[in-house]
C-alpha cells in the first residue's frame, strides 16, 4: 500500500508532473478550439443548399465518429512517415482531434441549429436579414444556448482524451507520470496524475451539472 502512495516519490516527481499538467492544458488549449472550429464549419456546411455538400458532411462526420481516435492518432504518427510525411506528436494530435472531435462538435451544433423553429429564420428573412445575418444573429445564439451543456460535456471529454498524446510522445501529464513511474519503479506518480486530472476537471463537472439542471425544467 505504501508503494501505491509514496509521498516521497511523488514529491520527487512533482516537477515532471507539473510540467505534464501544463502541457495537458496547453494541448487542450490547442485541440479544443480546433475541434470547435471544425465543428462550426461542418455544422454550417450541413445547412448548404447543395445536396452534395450536405451528404459530404454526413459522410465525413460519420466516418470520423466511427474511427477510434487512438487508432487515428497512431495511424497518423506511425503510418504517415511511410508515406514520406513525418509529423510530430503535437501536429498529429491537432489533426486527429480536428477530424475526430470536430465531427462530434459538429453534430452537437447541428442538433442545436435544427432545434430552432424554422419560423425564427423566416421572421428574420422576412425583415430583410440575409442568410448569414440570420444564422449569426438569430439561429446560432439560440442553438448554442440550447446545446451549451452538451458542448461543455463534449469539451470535458476532449480534455480527457488529450491523455492519448502520451502514446505519441507528447510530454503531457500521463506521459510524464509514466516516465516517472519507470524511473522510480513505483506507481505513485500515476496515482498523483489521476488525482491531478480529477482535481483539474472537477470544477468543470460541477459547472456542467449546473447547466444541465438549468436546462432541464424549461425543455
Amino acid at each position: 500500500m505504501s508503494d501505491f502512495f509514496d509521498a516521497g516519490i511523488i514529491l520527487a516527481a512533482w516537477p515532471m508532473l507539473w510540467r505534464g499538467l501544463l502541457t495537458t492544458l496547453a494541448l487542450s488549449a490547442l485541440v479544443v478550439p480546433l475541434g470547435l472550429a471544425a465543428g462550426f464549419g461542418l455544422a454550417l456546411l450541413s445547412t448548404s443548399r447543395s445536396r452534395a455538400v450536405r451528404w459530404g458532411v454526413i459522410g465525413w462526420t460519420d466516418l470520423f465518429r466511427a474511427f477510434p481516435p487512438l487508432v487515428l492518432l497512431i495511424l497518423l504518427y506511425g503510418g504517415l512517415p511511410f508515406a514520406g510525411l513525418e509529423l510530430g506528436g503535437v501536429a498529429c494530435m491537432a489533426i486527429a482531434f480536428f477530424l475526430n472531435t470536430g465531427s462530434y462538435y459538429s453534430e452537437v451544433i447541428r442538433a442545436g441549429m435544427e432545434s430552432v423553429p424554422p419560423g425564427q429564420s423566416e421572421a428574420a428573412r422576412s425583415l430583410g436579414l440575409g442568410t448569414w445575418q440570420t444564422l449569426r444573429t438569430i439561429v446560432l445564439p439560440q442553438a448554442l444556448r440550447r446545446v451549451l451543456p452538451d458542448l461543455v460535456s463534449n469539451t470535458l471529454e476532449v480534455v480527457k482524451l488529450t491523455s492519448l498524446a502520451s502514446v505519441v510522445a507528447v510530454p503531457e501529464l500521463l506521459y510524464q507520470a509514466r516516465q516517472a513511474q519507470s524511473l522510480t519503479y513505483n506507481p505513485s506518480p500515476i496515482f498523483a496524475a489521476a488525482v491531478l486530472y480529477a482535481v483539474a476537471l472537477w470544477p468543470f463537472v460541477k459547472i456542467l451539472r449546473r447547466l444541465e439542471q438549468r436546462a432541464a425544467p424549461s425543455r
Binding site: 419560423g119 428574420a124 428573412r125 430583410g128
Partner: peptide, 20 residues
C-alpha cells in the same frame, strides 16, 4: 431580395418573436 423584403412586412400565425 433582402432589400426588397424591407418594403414588405410580414406577420405570422405563431408570432415568431425572438425569445432571447
Amino acid at each position: 431580395i433582402n432589400l426588397a423584403r424591407q418594403r414588405i412586412g410580414m406577420v405570422f400565425q405563431s408570432f415568431n418573436l425572438y425569445p432571447t
